[in-house]
Design a protein around this nucleic acid. Sequence first.
DNA 1: CGGATCGTTGACAGGTATCAATGCTGGTGG
DNA 2: CCACCAGCATTGATACCTGTCAACGATCCG
Lengths: 238, 238
Amino acid sequence: MKLALINSAWESAEKCRNCEIRNLVLFADLTQEDFNLIHLPIDDYDLEVGETLYNESMPPKFIFTIRSGMVKLVHWLPNGNYRIVRLLRQGDVGGMEALNATPYLHQAIVLQKTSICRIPVEEIERLNRESPRLHKRLTSRWQKAVSDADIWLAHLTVGSAKKRVANLLLYLEKNCEQGLGKSLLLGREDIGALLGITTETASRIIAEYKRFGVIRQTSDPLVVDIDKPELQQIAEND
Amino acid sequence: MKLALINSAWESAEKCRNCEIRNLVLFADLTQEDFNLIHLPIDDYDLEVGETLYNESMPPKFIFTIRSGMVKLVHWLPNGNYRIVRLLRQGDVGGMEALNATPYLHQAIVLQKTSICRIPVEEIERLNRESPRLHKRLTSRWQKAVSDADIWLAHLTVGSAKKRVANLLLYLEKNCEQGLGKSLLLGREDIGALLGITTETASRIIAEYKRFGVIRQTSDPLVVDIDKPELQQIAEND
DNA sequence: CGGATCGTTGACAGGTATCAATGCTGGTGG
DNA sequence: CCACCAGCATTGATACCTGTCAACGATCCG
């Protein structure tokens, strides 16, 4: 049993060392010695659309890095409504609240098939104490979370509903890994919760964009081709 | 010259050790030995309404803790409009971007006479390396900045303009140090930039609240008495 | 006293929420 | 295989809200 645990830990360190997106995530700057410090298992696994990564009532024992895919952070309001406060994409870290021994602040739900690394908080704390390189990475991740939230606020909650949807589509084109000119097309309810508008308004605008050819269906119903210049035009003027 | 610097450093460490709000800010957990590590001067000073604490084009060499008062973080948009992305109040830390050697992300402008501690980034970095207690504090401040931003988003950018203003007044009552039942009354333009509404709409709503006695002028034109239950009522239902 | 700045108010058009009804699609069980 | 259902997306009608443009009042200060 103990041996199994040690093997597992060794394996996970090995996997991290060879991880192809390592330069994007927490362990980018770790050295060989740092990896030797890893004792607890780091699990990696995939989640399907709609599955929950963590929520407010789970014990905050892990942080999560996104290897690929996309996750929404949902904040539930007392009246049963909800608001999406951020999207996590490749290289982002979720659940960092756990590092301060406080409960998770959101429910994290998968929007696109997503590949995850789940890292025990204990492990992070040990490395944090013993590896200044990891510490540096962690604080810069934290900063990224703050500045993402600010940019969100400044771009996605101002202007008309049309502008907001245009900005969202442009944001997704950049960040959803579907390739140039392609964007993930979220459910209308999610679009509403992201932009602070109703589902009906979101639907109307998406339908209108489709009619005018600003966005076009692809073979995958969850992905659309977008007319980037046109959307940028809408986002700025109109 | 060198002696003067050393004296100044010694003095600032001394001041921090005796600071009456120390338990709120970064140095809460530092020990005597930790203070002995402080070599660079930590300045404290006051700023008046409208003065700028830092902005995007200043070299990011300091972080700032708010001893008292209130500061807005302004994000300028390309078209000349601006959005207030967060408010800093007693115990908050501003300009933490500097710790990652990136430019400041906002312009920080004083809303209420504010008392500041300005701490050199170099100093923080040294302490961070040598004092695990400070490190812990720093990460928890960072978390606070993230969760503040999220709460902001979830409460102050949804619902009707009336609800948003009500929520803002309740938020200020809790956080502006004017005492129970009293709230800082911001300029209408600031209210607009905070809530994502126009100045005119902000003005209409404030004027209406005044007419119905939900808020009442005090001797200080920048402070109002608020009818808390009524505002909570408005924030939830209506 | 005049000018600048900020707050207030009005009129109006356009945008958005709301309520309600109707398509559309994928999955399930007969 | 098909009928049916549940969940989403779409669309319409309408009232309300908010942005916009414009004018006017209040206050402060030189």
